[in-house]
Amino acid sequence: MTALLTFTDRGIYCPDGDFFIDPWRPVPRALVTHGHSDHARRGHGQYLCTHQALPVIRHRLGEITASGIAYGERRRIGGVTVSFHPAGHVPGSAQIRVERAGEVWVVSGDYKTEADGLAEAFDPVPCHAFITECTFGLPVFRWQPQAQVMAGIGAWWAANAALGRPSIIGAYSFGKAQRLMAGLTPQGPILTHGAVEDVTTILRSQGYALPETTRVTPGIDARSHPGALVIAPPSALGSVWARRFQNADEAFASGWMALRGIRRRRALGTGFTVSDHADWDGLNTAIRATGCERVFVTHGYTGPFRRWLAEQGYDAGIVETAYGDEEEETAPVAEAHP
């Protein structure tokens, strides 16, 4: 009997269901965990993702043949049964469960274990084999509770607002940006870069609770909105676009800001450690909660993390994938994604 899931140069493949999960080359049928560009790519014949993930995926990929599925809904595809379960990474993100004759494999996609109040909270899924990301799979990565991080960002915003200067924070336009606007205590108006606003509008219309935001258009600048929080993709920091907010204080929100060397290398103002990926403890807790015997690690510090899991008694392997090129992960530590 063939393995339930196999690893090919196009992506993770299920022979009995004849589908791929998050493939990075065009395939006839793709099951997609979430809308980040390294997981939801162009060119597939058919897409299947959660109802909640679909609008953003359609917005990003344009004309595609796609259908949605509810969290927890079981669907038969060929000789297997699949279902999608909350991954807590971004709104609509899922782990994908594949079952055949009582044998269960789960593909984690990207995930984080702490509930952020916006994305559907991570739900551990019991399985025999777990394919897990490990973007931050080293014990130096330990996130503070979200409330504490948000309080820190809030204090930074308040201090700038008191001086009458705008605060610009760089955050990935899908997920991180909305998590910030939803999690921060309002201190003034929130302005958004177009890339952020597009996604925000879509998520708001889906019913996610997001505060009021204003798209930055000509005429909006430091004078019209002193003390505003401006949320923009990291690439906009220090750019011509950002110059309209003269005197603004810049910050960057990313898990990589946990490392002092990287904070200093970016030299772009303050670094806040905010990640939509699991930290060291989160990864270990999640793996334990599945009750699995086999683990495949991908996307991150795979070498050391695999060895660590093997020493914990798991049958652990490494899967090479092409994930990890989404904006947050464009490897400030290039080591992380060789």
Partner: peptide
Amino acid sequence: AAHLPLWLFEEAYAVTGDLAETIAHI
């Protein structure tokens, strides 16, 4: 103190490049 094997400590150290920082976080 962190209940971690020394090799994993060294891997983490190689990434931060700073002994004091590695210890502070692990």
